[in-house]
Design a protein around this nucleic acid. Sequence first.
RNA 1: GGAGAGAUGGCCGAGUAGGUCGAAGGCGCUCGCCUGCUAAGCGAGUAGAUGGGUAAUAGCCUGUCUCGAGGGUUCGAAUCCCUCUCUCUCCGCCA
Length: 425
Amino acid sequence: MLELKFIRKNPEVVRAALEKRGVDFDLEALLDLDDEWRQKLFTVEQLKSRRNAVSEEIARLKKTGGPAKALITEMREVSQQIKEMDAEIRQVEERLQGFLLQLPNIPHPLVPFGRDEADNQEIRSWGVLPAFSFAPRPHWELGEALNIIDFGRGSKVSGARFSFYRGAGARLERALINFMLDLHVDRHGYTELFPPFLVNGRSMTGTGQLPKFAADMYKVEGEDYYLIPTAEVPVTNFLRDEIVEADSLPQKYVAYSACFRAEAGAAGRDTRGLIRQHQFNKVELVKFCRPEESDDELEMLVRDAEEVLKLLGLPYRVVLLCTGDLGFAAAKTYDLEVWMPYQGVYREISSCSNFTDFQARRANIRYRPAPKAKAVFVHTLNGSGLAVGRTLAAILENYQQPDGTVVVPEVLRPYMGGLARIEPE
RNA sequence: GGAGAGAUGGCCGAGUAGGUCGAAGGCGCUCGCCUGCUAAGCGAGUAGAUGGGUAAUAGCCUGUCUCGAGGGUUCGAAUCCCUCUCUCUCCGCCA
């Protein structure tokens, strides 16, 4: 959410941001509404001021036995007016709030202009693409042949885009989660959280999923519970409505969670394999920091996520999203894309964003720069570190052998009971 | 799920026969004084949000709202009524 005052004073900045994003938004309507709101507010506050003054006067008169009758009658009238105006103002505020919640964040100045993902900028790449003496197979074939992933039973038990991991597959998934958590906790200094997987509507609004993206999420029927699409939601809302200690910043958290996505509108894309599932596992990194730190913190966040891929020996590249591809709440985003040999493309495996104060304003997370100073909004950042299902898929494809077995990356073996190679059972 | 108790400022905690209560007191914090240092002591200050005015960021003046949330009664509500949420205790159930 942007600050109303900021929009009021810098409408051209907001307009330019919307244009860069290619977003259609009726800024004029918002500004008109703001005008209307302030006018009404001023009028009703004058009435209230009078009522407060006269009420005191009445109290005084009653004490001294003076005549208060006429005043009371008059105030009855005024109170009625106030009630009506308050109702009007509430309506205007609701509409105003509706507008504000739909307004995306302003892109960081360094974000390249572009229409869609084709205009994203490659920043750097790492690793040597594996050379195969045979045609590399897709991870879903490998997974089924090795009997470590079961898509058929997943759709029987739940539906399309659900799956079971089995045997070494289940263990590999778990190994990846533990490996990532350990890395970020022990080496990168994050504090581990294990969050709730169901959150309330207020939390979803805090991070920006609601009200705009309700269709992408699962909701528990009849209750104010949503299945989280990412641990970003519970972890960012961890500090909601709080004023945190200045010297506690930056605060860095890492959390494993299952993630649930309805993926409305994605039908037909990536129908096979682990790439796009309704439920998947992810290890998420979340940071809260001072505004002046967030640029650097984003760079460090990306490095922390990259480290996972390096240690796993998976080739990847880092891409800076252009204005048109940038997410609703993000000011700047780097995607990490891992090499997928079967399709011969890089696929997103992590998305690392600086949300500046956009989420913090919605979620009301602040800190005091100095002991007596006014509390200001922190900056929030997050990034996958990494999406586990996609990582497992990448391992299967990159580490596959001519005989269909898959070599387990060195760093995961301690987590796999020493297993060095996955063979069919 | 059942029964009961509670929700007040950064924290603790007064305040219910409705009217100078945005709120006593304490702690904490800030500034100053005092003091070889530290501690103690003394004095002053110390909620947030928001509209308007003024001021080239600070600040200052002024209005409004906020005592869990929402609604109601009333000229006037922290105080009365209704609904909801959360917390605690006991019971039940359960991993």
